[in-house]
Each structure stands twice: as structure tokens, then as C-alpha cells.
Write a protein that binds this DNA or RNA. Structure first.
Lengths: 311, 311
DNA sequence: TGAGGTCATAGGCTGGGCTTATGTCCAGCA
DNA sequence: TGCTGGACATAAGCCCAGCCTATGACCTCA
């Protein structure tokens, strides 16, 4: 989604579907088309054909077939690993969607801020599912006030918020930190800067999320000390839109570190350090004061709890 | 792929296909089903039906339809962002696969080590495509020696290797560092350790990639000073298999930081610092001595080149 | 040489997803 | 008030991708 290009031969036509990727991964694991077919619940000829058509589509041989089984070619190994990344993203999607579906009456009802629901929660749910398979989780996403409300009303068992303080009436614990970072396209002059002064940041129009987002609040608070609020160059409604605008060189933007994995390692965006501004915010698990989480809520909490040796 | 579970109702059945995700993202961008349909090249009723069936599948309303257009619901916004992650992974897949396909005769022929080809290159190619749309890239993955060979033989224009030194006959520049980290499942005793001594690491059987992998070499070299080579508990052939084994509690493993994004933030795995061991390795771009890259090779190189303000 | 594993090929069926044509609703404008 | 245009929904029909079963070819090992 880095461009608004009208896709002549669009992505889905150039990429095998999820089923094919899952199948390929299964073949890699089992070393056999037939066994992989059984695992994913299709017949051996179907698997054979499916892999074959994937090879045609990609123009690369993926498997060395032999009468004793099938092994990945070098290219196949690479493709399989890329496929795994796609499948992992799909699993996160599934975990999140599943939590979203079970609107009420689930055993564990979680209320979380947007950023946490978006970036962290699906991973936690996958982990939770691995450890406690049966647990049904429902998810409600909203801002800190909404999360607090749900908890106080007994409509959620565990909450996650980002921000500077714990909402009234709740107890909580810090589970992680999130850093806001200033990023620009590699071609932007700031990409060469050793560091920025807070004054410069406050004086420069930035690409931002719309007013009211958590990111925006933290940024405003941090800059208040140094010459006023952040000045918007563009106000966009989704994180991805912000990234896209920054990538295409529209200007600098400020985003949560959590949102920037791929873009940074591909150097589609680069970070610009800012001297002496506190752009860290705490991510907290919260619950009604006095009611320490128990049962599945405790399980989830312990999954997320920060421990000494941190990355 | 974190488990070997036999999928009763498998992932692809629970997750919409790529086309649907792309469509949803387009709807989010345009605020209109019809316009989104046009963008992805299908008819308006097809788009309508497709989104509807996605809502049925997920059990969540994604769109607020009105006679003046469609806006995402809150749940829809979340789902769209998760979908974007899947689509981004698919784009990386596509970029990699495309490079793999154009075996010979491409304008820019890249030879890269496995780790770089797997984790970094697709992102670079997406960025390159954004900046220099027409560039056809071909990719050849292999170990350092193979990369050197290709470059010397004139069969590749630019190479990427990981390791301690530049192969004979090549010039190069460091473009990034890769840290190897020791990770364990959160339940593992080491997860509580403040830090490990190198001796402990050398004395403990680890889950490792098979002999000959770059990761393995660096680890062996680092541990050689402290009581010998790494001792394998399991030797597995893919990074993901190693992660899976570690997650399920089989033991500690050592992996490149690049391979561990999701697992760490979800705390499915946690890192264990090791005192006084040099587990950094350099990632380098290389080319035949004296032949500085030009043209598209230079473009790609400048995309990857490290600059002062690093994250 | 036969048994048991592998993968490939062939033929026939089914259904999901597409298109076109049409209906309904709403807003804005005369 | 009634017309127009844009939005989405519904209906009917078509088509092809992908599946299954059945079978064949090949290799290995006893």
C-alpha cells in the first residue's frame, strides 16, 4: 500500500493464495507432497497440482521431486520463508478477528487502546492460544476513557491503555514502553541530520494522525515545553496513510515505533533522533482497583508482563 | 506455524483471501465500495458481495453503508490494519519472488546471503520499485563464497554478505549490523536470568540451525574463546523450525535479531543477554574490487547505505 | 519380483466469484 | 415536489479454478 497505483495486474494475481502458502510450508515440513496434502486436508493430486501451478505462477521450481519425497530447492526455501511471513500475518489477523467476533459472553473480555489492539494484541492471543487452547477472548477497542468505562462497568476483565497515567479507579502495571520516533524518507534533508532540536521539531509542519489520537497527545505534551504544539502539515486518519505520505517524501512524521518495523529495516523510512524530548510512553495493563486479575485474565497478563531481561 | 496442529477448520477457511483484503483496504481509502471496486478492477456488485461475505465470515460488521458511501466501523478499522499487515507481507513475497523469477538477463543482478535475501531484500526491492519503477532485478541466494564467485564471474552486479570479513577480490561497505540473540520461551528458567555467562551458553545444548549456516559460524566463533563450540540440542533446517521448537519450550536457541520481530513483541520468546560475547556480525554490500557499482546497482546500494542517524 | 512409498495424469463435478441488469434509497436542486 | 445522480443491494446466469477419484509410472527395499 505504499502507492495509490492502479494495479494493472494486481497483487492477488501475482501471489499464490494463502492455502497454497500453507500447503508449501507443510510440504517443507514433511518432505512429502502426499503427507502435506493429508495435513491440510486435501488429496495428493490436488496438492501436486497446486504446487505446480504455484511454480508456474512464480516461474521458479520450488521442489525437487523424487520418488522418495520432495525437498525444497534453494529458491523454494526462500519462497517458503516469505510465505511463512505472510501466513504469520494471516494468523495474527485471524487471532484478532476471532477476538473481535465473540462480542460478548466470552470467557475473557479484553478492552484495549487502538495501538495495542492493532499491534500487540494479536501476537498475545496467538501465544495465549498456544498455552491455553480453549480460552475464548473477546476484544473491545477504544481510547483510554472507553477502556476504563468498560472495566468499571464490569464489561471487560482486563484492559490495556497507553498514556501517562492510570485512569481513576483502576490499578495497573506497566507492561512495555512505546517510543514515538520522528521518521522521514531517506531523501529528506533530515535523514542526514545527526540530531534535531525540539525547537526545530515544534517549528516544522509534520504529517500526523488526526487530533485525539494517543500518538498526537503524547507528541503535543512533549513539545509543549519547547515552543508549543506540533504543527500539522497533513492530518491523516490511519497510521498507514501517514507512513505512505512520509515515504513519498511529503514531509517528516511522528509515529509509534510499533508501527515501523518493516519500513525501517527496508530503509523506506529513516529515524531522526531528537535531543532532549521525552517521546516515550508507557503501555499498561489495567483492571478495577483492588480486583487483581484471575483465571484467563491472569494468564494473558503474565504473557505480557515485563521481565528483567528486556530486548 | 508455531504448532504442528492438524487444522480441523484450517486457517485459509477462517481468513479472507488476499483479494478481499486488498479490496477492504481500497474501500477504507476511498470511502466508497464502488470506487474501490473500480480500483481493483471488479464490478461494484462483486465488491459489495465480497465485503459482505467477509463480514459473514468474520462475524463482524466492517462497514457503515450509507447512500453516500461507506465508512469503516471501529472493528473495520482494526481489521483493515491487520489486513494491511498481511498485504504488506504479500507484497514482500511478491517482490522477492519477482526477483527470483528473472533468473538471468535482468538489468540488475543481485547475489545475497540467505539471511539478507530472506529478511532484508524484499523490503529493499519494494523501496527500489517505488523509486525506480522500471528496474528488473534478479536474485541469487547462496553463502558468502557463492556470492563472491558470482561477482567475480560477472554474473552478478551487486552482492550482500554477512560475516566477519570481505571475501578476497571484493570491495564492500558495511550497511547494517545483525545481532545474534539468545532467546527462550517465557517459561524457561533463563527467562528470569539477568544475564548469562558465555561459559553457561557454551555448556548448554542449544537449538540451532544446521552446521554451515552463517548464524552457526558466528556463534561458534564467538564461543570458541569461552570453552568450545556451541553444543546442539536439536539441529533444524529452517529458522522458523528453530523458533517453533524454542517457543514450545524445547530449550534455548540462538537466532538473528532479524528473524525475531513478532515473537519478541508478543513475548512468545524472550531474549537473554549474554555478558561479554561478541554476537554482532556485519552485513555488507560487496562488489568486485575497483568496480564501484553504477546505475541500478548504485540505486539499490544507496537505498541500503547506512547513514548517521540510525535506529 | 512384489509391496509400498513417491509423484503425475486424466476426467468429471461443484461452487465461488464474476458480470450485467435492475431495484431502492437518499441528497441536492430547481 | 419531483427529477437526477450517486451510493449500495439483489437477481440471474456463466465460467473457470480447484477438488476428487481412479489410475499410471517410477523408485527402493526386502
Amino acid at each position: 500500500m505504499s502507492s495509490t497505483a492502479p494495479p494493472p495486474s494486481s497483487l492477488p494475481h501475482r501471489v499464490p493464495d494463502l492455502g497454497a502458502m500453507v500447503l508449501l510450508i507443510a510440504v517443507a515440513r514433511h518432505g512429502s507432497l502426499g503427507r502435506a496434502a493429508r495435513e491440510v486436508g486435501i488429496s495428493q493430486p490436488a496438492a501436486s497440482g497446486r504446487i505446480r501451478s504455484m511454480e508456474r505462477q512464480l516461474g521458479v521450481a520450488l521442489l525437487d521431486r523424487s520418488p522418495r519425497g520432495s525437498r525444497l530447492t534453494d529458491a523454494g526455501a526462500l519462497v517458503t520463508d516469505w510465505a511463512r511471513r505472510v501466513v504469520e500475518a494471516a494468523e495474527a489477523f485471524d487471532a484478532g478477528a476471532q477476538a473481535l467476533r465473540d462480542r460478548r459472553d466470552s470467557r475473557l473480555r479484553v478492552a484495549a487502546s487502538m495501538t495495542i489492539a492493532e499491534y500487540l494484541l494479536p501476537g498475545w492471543l496467538i501465544a495465549l492460544r498456544a498455552g491455553r487452547p480453549g480460552t475464548a477472548v473477546s476484544l473491545l477497542a477504544g481510547n483510554s476513557a472507553a477502556v476504563a468505562l468498560r472495566l468499571m462497568a464490569g464489561e471487560a476483565d482486563l484492559g490495556f491503555v497507553e498514556g501517562l497515567s492510570i485512569p481513576e479507579g483502576l490499578d495497573g502495571t506497566v507492561i512495555a514502553h512505546d517510543r514515538l520516533v520522528v521518521v522521514v524518507a531517506p531523501a529528506h534533508p533530515w535523514a542526514r541530520r545527526d540530531r534535531l532540536t525540539p525547537g526545530e521539531l515544534a517549528a516544522t509542519p509534520l504529517i500526523l494522525r488526526e487530533h485525539g489520537s494517543g500518538t498526537r497527545q503524547v507528541l503535543d505534551a512533549a513539545l509543549a515545553v519547547h515552543g508549543g504544539l506540533a504543527r500539522p502539515l497533513l492530518e491523516l486518519s490511519s497510521t498507514t496513510a501517514v507512513k505512505g505520505a512520509a515515504e513519498s517524501g511529503a514531509g517528516p512524521c511522528v509515529l509509534s515505533e510499533l508501527a515501523l518495523g518493516e519500513e525501517l529495516s527496508a530503509r523506506r523510512l529513516v529515524t531522526v533522533p531528537v535531543a532532549g524530548v521525552r517521546l516515550r510512553r508507557q503501555l499498561r495493563a489495567v483492571w478495577p482497583a483492588g480486583h487483581r486479575p484471575t483465571g484467563p485474565a491472569r494468564d494473558l497478563l503474565s504473557l505480557t508482563a515485563r521481565e528483567p531481561g528486556e530486548s
